[in-house]
Design a protein around this nucleic acid. Structure first.
Lengths: 224, 224
DNA sequence: GGAATAGTGTCTGTCAGACAGTATTGG
DNA sequence: CCAATACTGTCTGACAGACACTATTCC
């Protein structure tokens, strides 16, 4: 079958960009400067360009340019499609999740802001559905993977790591069980002699993610 | 931003169609009748049409028409994209997994055949990668969901169900643990008075999936 | 009764959660 | 010393895997 007739399908990427602020999960949203949905909040997104090497390249470009983020982790979420989700044409949006340490994002501006994921405004297109799917994926995967560590920078303390997990899972974890699990799975490496500072209390040791640690053997936390 | 320039991106769907034959996972492959890759085996797939209500609709059409399957379960796998995966143009393939009971598929023909997933031929495009991702997803999800039940028809016995799980997970399960788990989770409903027949041994009771049973609380099987 | 498969009961090691206790900092 | 947070040890209940046992069919 040769396809001579162009399909006239709009092909875009959209990003659910999540970070941790004040111990809660926040999403980066962008106020649309143009039609359609001019002035509405939306997920950062854009068209795939012919120069892009893949949709993943395209979404990386969008995250860097529209959200001004750096040092993020990205994973494909799902693809949303249909004749009516964009008023201009039959459209496909390949949606991604990105996790970014808070300090790799700029401060809020008029048109790009962080929103607590449980207090988001109405969004353009079907972006509310995409955001919801993204948060669900992150919460689900947080229980059995190192995903929440991507909310932290290179070096972190175990209390930091626990907070990232609690933030993603939306529940508190027992400190002792958490540490036992992290230790058993050889998830992190101690940075010898490095300690956190500030605060009138015992300082905590600094760690980094162990090379090759990606998935847990068993669940961590949350009674599911 | 208004997009007047057509993107010239080919947008297709492809299906990893899996079934259980002789206790092993098999995939439906299709011999391509036309260029590109004429004569090569490939995943059943096709272009999205403007009449389709979504990519999921499109893949349903493809599965029914190219694989002649009915009564299948389908879930989105991932989207593959890039300038070179299809020699004709920058292309996007939205890939799906389908699970079909063997009796809802026709017998092998010259151009549509079942292949044991561990003995597949070389495939067109990047379809080997897609198939591999599909099998990995199914194996991973089989451990904590009712996914393997989709390899069976409406009514099945517990030995049938256990075989479906073993087939998906690629390992044997302890009968007692398996039944305890299935029972604890209220995963299935007994069909009162219905028994399997044939075979000179004790007949087994027939069950169907309980309404609303989709996900396990804990892992089932495999030491992971 | 025997072969074959369906289905049940019980023991045991492992592990997550709870919680109490110890350690180390600044003030 | 106290406050605050970091970190550790131990008990206990729940549960998966192992495996032996019973049940029911056809021959």
């Amino acid at each position: 079958m040769t396809q001579d007739i162009p399909q006239n399908i709009i092909t875009t990427v959209d990003a659910v960009i999540l970070t941790m602020q004040e111990g809660r999960l926040h999403a980066v949203l962008h106020k649309r400067p143009n039609a359609p949905f001019e002035g509405a909040w939306a997920l950062p997104g854009g068209f795939i360009h012919s120069e892009d090497g893949s949709a993943e390249d395209a979404v990386g470009r969008v995250i860097r340019e529209k959200a001004q983020a750096s040092g993020f982790w990205v994973e494909q979420l799902a693809t949303f499609s249909g004749p009516h989700r964009d008023p201009r044409a039959w459209s496909v949006s390949i949606a991604y999740i990105a996790l970014v340490p808070r300090h790799n994002l700029p401060d809020d501006t008029e048109n790009v802001r962080l929103f607590d994921v449980s207090e988001t405004p109405h969004l353009a297109f079907d972006h509310e559905r995409i955001l919801q799917a993204g948060v669900e994926r992150v919460r689900g995967k947080g229980a059995y993977s190192t995903l929440p560590a991507n909310l932290l920078g290179e070096e972190f303390t175990l209390p930091d790591l626990q907070m990232a997990y609690e933030c993603v899972l939306g529940s508190t974890l027992d400190q002792s069980s958490f540490r036992r699990k992290i230790n058993d799975l050889r998830l992190v490496q101690e940075i010898p002699g490095a300690f956190s500072k500030g605060g009138s209390h015992r300082p905590s040791k600094l760690y980094r993610i162990a090379p090759g640690a990606e998935t847990f053997n068993r669940s961590l936390g949350g009674r599911v």
